[in-house]
Design a protein around this nucleic acid. Structure first.
Lengths: 227, 227
DNA sequence: GTGCAATCGAACCACTCGGTTCGAAAAGGT
DNA sequence: ACCTTTTCGAACCGAGTGGTTCGATTGCAC
């Protein structure tokens, strides 16, 4: 039954014909339009009439695809979270050198969290965090853990290789993340910085972060001939 | 004329009789009630009917004191900002020892930014930052500058005393602030941490921050007899 | 061309919103 | 007790809210 339905959907994808509420193109169209309104004015000030206009579909169609405003919002935030998480997965793939890894992670992460889309998604989620604890918990919990886990694994590897000496890996990972991104993220979130920081500014701050981090955790090379 | 009015107000303060909309007790009552609603559900979801009930005054009285919802909100956020700024003014007064100063600043600041009241004020302001850029700009700009300036002055003093070697004071100040508070603040803001961190947890993280900071910027004592 | 179904969009619903009006009640001064 | 003024609170206003209904239009398959 479900296999039959799945096959039917795959076939229909070529044909452009779906059951009501099942057209992925129409669904994305709604999500895209709604996202623009939610990210612009937040959940409460986003009206379904505004979303109808922005998405370019009928309001009754929106209600065929989503049960209510809350469900539409949740779908958008989940989509945002997945995109954000996805883009951070491979920041440290295949890297073995400690400074190259730290630099690449720091810059990549800073670019990600200061991007306009990320900031507005965060801001929108923060605004309703106390009223929608489950949704916000899911959004921030997963994202936070994933980002730090990647760095923690990398630090563990470096400790095993003898390039770093770290007693508390989770604390060190937190410290490095905050050194690289903390101020940037806050300035963007608060609206003090109207545009994302430049890449060169990010690189400058990440370089300083690395320098401090290595001063605290780096293992000095004891053999001068290896320099 | 204005002197006469001012004297009249001072006298009346003892007597309990004010011109309409000029009673400071009634004004605070409105602000307190409105604050509770705004901080709980945000600007948009806070209705003037809710605020009327919470403040325990008539809606028409609220409109005698404040022109509209926006003005009421702005007055509350300004009051919050001033309280926040005030409480951070003297964190480093009279301290000369570098590690004592760093510890005291780190712990004091972390306790302040993770307090429930601070977090909800920030969250509420962030939610409307893109719609009320002037208000949010004022709120965050002043607060951010003041907090960091205090630390920068302290670092400058320590550099002059020879206990720290810092090329870039503003960057170092940012780094230390983020090391001490960055993760705590975000976890609270995102609603992941449901309660503020314990003082012992803050002290643990601040101690780690100091250790890292001194590893990077501290001037080692070259005279053993001074230990 | 025909038939079927998804989508459209105008109209509708009960309710809430921010803000206004104004007579009654309350408070304070003399 | 009387007078004045502040505050109260019920009723009101036009606009907007999320969500529903349903005949007309459109799009796709055959």
């Amino acid at each position: 039954m479900s296999d039959e339905r799945s096959a039917s959907c795959d076939t229909a994808a070529q044909a452009g014909r779906f059951a009501a509420g099942a057209d992925p193109v129409k669904r994305e169209q709604i999500l895209d339009g709604a996202k623009r309104v939610f990210m612009s004015v937040g959940f409460d000030a986003a009206s379904m009439n505004d979303i109808t206009r922005e998405a370019g579909v009928s309001k009754s169609t929106i209600y065929v695809y989503f049960a209510n405003k809350d469900e539409l919002f949740a779908a958008i935030m989940e989509r945002e979270r997945m995109q954000l998480t996805q883009s951070l997965q491979d920041l440290l793939s295949g890297i073995e050198d400690v400074e190259e890894g730290l630099f690449r992670y720091g810059v990549g992460f800073a670019l990600q969290v200061t991007a306009v889309g990320t900031v507005s998604a965060m801001r929108t989620m923060i605004a309703v965090a106390s009223r929608m604890p489950q949704l916000s918990g899911q959004f921030f919990q997963q994202e936070t853990l994933n980002v730090r886990t990647v760095l923690e694994h990398f630090l563990e590897q470096q400790v095993a290789r003898g390039t770093l000496r770290v007693d508390d890996i989770p604390l060190a990972a937190r410290q490095y993340i905050e050194l690289c991104t903390g101020t940037f993220f806050k300035l963007c979130l608060f609206g003090v910085a109207r545009t994302p920081p430049s890449t060169s500014e990010i690189e400058r701050v990440v370089t300083g972060a690395m320098k401090l981090f290595m001063a605290g955790y780096g293992v000095k090379k004891s053999d001068p001939s290896m320099q």
